[in-house]
Design a protein around this nucleic acid. Structure first.
Length: 469
RNA sequence: GUCCCCAUCGUCUAGUGGCCUAGGACAUCGGCCUCUCACGCCGAAAACGGGGGUUCGACUCCCCCUGGGGAUACCA
């Protein structure tokens, strides 16, 4: 068996969208699993749609996902001389021919074929015609002299045996009238030259595989293993594409998703390993193979991604989270974070991360740890700090001021005792305290918050609350 | 139109002829925990599209229908 070499071949027309990311992930995983190579090829043959920014965006997306590629990315456009050379060889060997049809003739043929219910859109009229008949002043295209009988069969690693009658396929164009290679030719030549062993790509290429197989045949080249993975669908059940709801991966990054969560989610869309749901990168590499890829299209489900993201946030290290949260907080604050505030933030993260679905939410919830006094107080918290609430805060403040050992348990004992002494529920005291200390009615455990805030800051915030009516 | 592919809870899926009274996860709905919110835990509801075969026995194999998707360019 040939060494495993896979490739991801996006066209640089924009960001790396979610479907492309999944294709890239599967290729990467397959290569890593087999100790092979994962190559990148930019399909930039169409110069009208090419943009260097798009190429950078694709690199950026892959890097964010942690899908590192081997060797320098290949530019398909740069290989056009080689594509032409192959076409010339095919011409010389009789595997291809020049066709002088005008666009009008072609549309007419197409219409007629449709009416007749035929799949062959081109009737092969120049296939055996003598080139001396060529009309003057017409630049010909080069077409493949495809087999007209028999069938083309693909042994697809995911879809199984897929076959089509050769009478369904017409002589495709290899080189355009302007001398540039078409996609069909370019992919085949590039995949061959790059020694790609496994072509893993979206289902939408399945019918292209037939045509490509014919080109391989004409060239007497060995066929790679094809593996056509099912497409990603939107919630309407239609193919997800850039113009149909597929967002770039960086959008998810900006929305606070962790790359590990994204990878895990994408992996489980169309691939499974028993009933495992949480799958680490290492496990994915160890377990991934094509035989466990499903054959039906999968719908993108934001809820499940979000749930996975929550899991990965809860299990992320505080240092990693701090890196992610800090710039967001500084933006929210409009200034840098001072050293003591940073220390509070760092200690607060473990309690905060239990409660966040994404990094943006985590940041917002962390804001009270780093905000300077006086704290902004939201409406619900304001309600808790009514006259009665402020009285509770006042009681708590007196109680807390007498504490010698500022620790979670001490704090809790003291407040619980104070509540019990007044025959009140803990919540009666805790909620106004929460409002005063965090400016919100929702936060991590209130004794944890007080411990992290420290004596001075805690007492200060309580003072602020009682003194501002 | 033609060709190709697909088909298990709402969604992602397990299941490769008897282990299925169809399992898990997300979402949903109850409950527990509890200083709020989460987390966590317990529980409920929820699926093999239809019809024919094959077989002692089909979610599993075959055929048809239906439904869905994809491809039908001198785009990639």
């Amino acid at each position: 068996m040939n060494p495993v070499v896979t490739r991801f071949a996006p066209s640089p027309t924009g960001y790396l969208h979610i479907g492309g990311a999944r294709t890239a992930l599967f290729n990467w995983l397959f290569a890593r699993h087999h100790g092979g190579k994962f190559l990148l090829r930019i399909e930039d043959t169409d110069r009208k749609r090419y943009s260097p920014e798009a190429v950078e965006a694709i690199y950026g997306g892959l890097k964010w996902l942690g899908l590192d590629w081997d060797e320098e990315p290949v530019s398909q456009f740069a290989g056009r001389a080689r594509h032409q050379e192959v076409a010339e060889n095919l011409l010389a060997s009789g595997g291809a021919y020049r066709c002088y049809c005008s666009p009008e003739e072609l549309t007419e043929m197409r219409e007629r074929a449709r009416e007749a219910g035929s799949a062959r859109l081109y009737d092969g009229r120049w296939r055996d015609r003598d080139p001396v008949d060529a009309p003057a002043g017409v630049d010909p295209v080069i077409r493949l002299k495809a087999p007209q009988t028999g069938e083309t069969v693909i042994e697809d690693a995911i879809q199984g045996t897929v076959r089509v009658g050769n009478d369904q396929l017409d002589d495709m164009i290899l080189v355009r009238a302007d001398g540039t290679p078409t996609y069909m030719l370019a992919v085949v030549v590039d995949d061959h030259d790059m020694a790609i062993s496994h072509v893993i790509r979206g289902d939408d290429h399945l019918t292209n595989a037939f045509r490509q197989a014919q080109i391989y045949g004409a060239l007497s080249w060995e066929l790679p293993v094809f593996a056509h993975m099912p497409l990603l669908h939107g919630s309407d059940g239609k193919k997800l594409s850039k113009r149909h709801g597929a967002l770039g991966v960086e959008t998810y990054r900006d929305d606070g998703f962790l790359s590990d969560a994204m990878n895990n989610y994408l992996l489980r869309l169309g691939w499974s390993h028993g009933s495992d749901e949480i799958i680490s990168r290492d496990e994915a590499i160890e377990w991934f193979d094509l035989d466990a890829v499903g054959r039906g299209a999968a719908q993108f489900d934001m809820d499940k991604l979000t749930s996975l993201n929550g899991h990965y946030i809860r299990h992320a290290g505080d240092a990693e989270l701090l890196e992610l949260v800090r710039p967001i907080l500084e933006k929210l604050l409009g200034h840098g974070i001072e050293i003591d505030a940073l220390a509070r933030l760092k200690s607060g993260l473990s309690g905060l991360k239990e409660r966040a679905k994404n990094i943006n939410e985590l940041s917002e919830n962390a804001l009270f740890y780093v905000h300077k006094r006086p704290l902004p107080v939201d409406d619900k918290a304001r309600k808790l700090l009514d006259e009665q609430g402020r009285r509770m805060v006042d009681i708590a403040r007196d109680e807390l001021a007498g504490i010698s050992n500022w620790s979670h348990d001490e704090l809790e004992n003291s407040i619980r005792d104070a509540a019990a002494a007044r025959d009140e529920n803990l919540g009666k005291l805790a909620q106004p305290l929460r409002a005063a200390l965090t400016g919100s009615n929702v936060s991590p455990g209130i004794f944890e918050v007080m411990e992290i805030l420290g004596r001075e800051e805690t007492l200060g915030r309580l003072e602020d609350a009682v003194s501002t009516p």
